[in-house]
Amino acid sequence: MEQLVCIVCPRGCTMTLNDTPDGLSVTGNACPRGKAFAIAETTQPMRTLCTTAATAFPAAPVLPVRVRGEIPKDRIFDVMAAINAVTVDFPAARGDVILENVCGLGVDVIATSSLLSEEGERP
């Protein structure tokens, strides 16, 4: 029996995992996303990652970015290193790809703000 807190939404359900002959059982979750999260936590924990990437624009030295999909929790620092090696030198808009297939994980890193494209419009 193992207890864990769901991080899928702010409700933060406390869930209990039990090994049963029919596989893992999850109780305490208020929705199916909680169950999926609980099972992933015991097999391959996944996380999103939000950070910034350096830019070539002095008015906005960093651009907020995130991974488009979840990445394995134990690869977070590898992905950070890959993002920290990038300098965004074009006026990226929100949703633009900053780094394709980061660390070969099949997930792109995208801009989460149109900060740079808007800064460019200003006098």
Binding site: C9, P10, T48, C50, T51, T52, P64, R66, R94, T112, S113, S114, L115
Partner: peptide, 24 residues
Amino acid sequence: KQCIHDGFGLVRFKEKLSGPEYAE
């Protein structure tokens, strides 16, 4: 603008947005 982490908008947009995405 500075809340670059995600988790915004779950109630309204049923999506996990970062702060800048939600604001924009």
